[in-house]
Simulated assay, not measured.
Amino acid sequence: MILLISDLHLQEERPDITRAFLDLLDGRARHAKALYILGDFFDAWIGDDAMTPFQQSICQALRTLSDSGTAIYLMHGNRDFLIGQDFCKTAGCTLLTDPSVVELGGEPVLLMHGDTLCTRDVAYMKLRRYLRNPLSLWILRHLPRSTRQKLARKLRSESQAQVRMKNTEIVDVTPDEVPKVMSEHSVRTLIHGHTHRPALHKLVVEGQPARRIVLGDWDRRGWALQVDDQGMHLAPFEFS
């Protein structure tokens, strides 16, 4: 069994989500061969050198799961793209590039956070290119912690305001971008998060049946995609 989750947006202000995640680690994830976390694991991350006690506790929980035998793979999201190798080494997880092709259920599957599929959001794509530039990343990581904290709060506030104002189509994936990306990577299954619109979309790529599975965000309930001998099953679960 393999589990895939995304968009938990872990933060101290949402202990219900934290408890649900820790329950998953102590439950299904203990019996899984691997756990994939496809971005926006934390609601904000200003650097491995600035971990709060809360973030350190999550790091230790991941290490405990890793030590039990479950492989953990982590992908950057738009909220936590400053997560680095120091965190991953301590947590016992592997940092995946976005996008990545992995084998799930006996087939190659494309994994993405999903934000790069939203090409109609021109302003965001421009900001993303700037923030992910290697020079920008170096500068961000070397800013004083207080400056990084202020910048993170500003970016988060602006992002929330812009999402509320933008047309829903703009902040969703661009339909033409999906088959293009899948064709480039020679896959018939794409799994991503980011849009907070969990669903299974059937489509055709190069004349062949294909599917796009969108993971859900953890807010009023949790979401997990389970891959096992019976196939791929996306389902929500209530917070205890």
Rank of each mutant, 00 (worst) to 15 (best):
T97L: 14
R220I: 08
M182C: 08
D23Q: 10
R141F: 13
T64W: 03
A224M: 14
W138T: 15
R221I: 00
M75Q: 09
L110H: 13
G114D: 01
R14V: 05
L35R: 04
E12H: 01
G231W: 06
K202D: 06
I191N: 02
I17T: 12
A20P: 08
R197C: 08
Y124I: 11
T116F: 11
E107S: 09
E177A: 15
G77T: 06
T195V: 11
S159C: 01
D48M: 06
I213V: 10
C93H: 02
W218A: 14
H31S: 14
L203I: 06
I213M: 12
K150W: 10
R120H: 02
E169V: 03
P209N: 03
I191L: 01
V102N: 03
R63M: 07
S183R: 11
K126A: 15
V102S: 06
T119P: 06
F42L: 09
E169T: 05
Y73T: 06
A199N: 09
E12K: 04
H194A: 09
S57M: 13
V173D: 01
Q149V: 08
T116E: 12
S186C: 08
S66N: 10
F54L: 06
P198G: 01
D86Q: 11
A161H: 00
H233I: 10
V171D: 02
T97D: 13
M75N: 07
F21Q: 12
E13F: 03
G47C: 12
A152V: 13
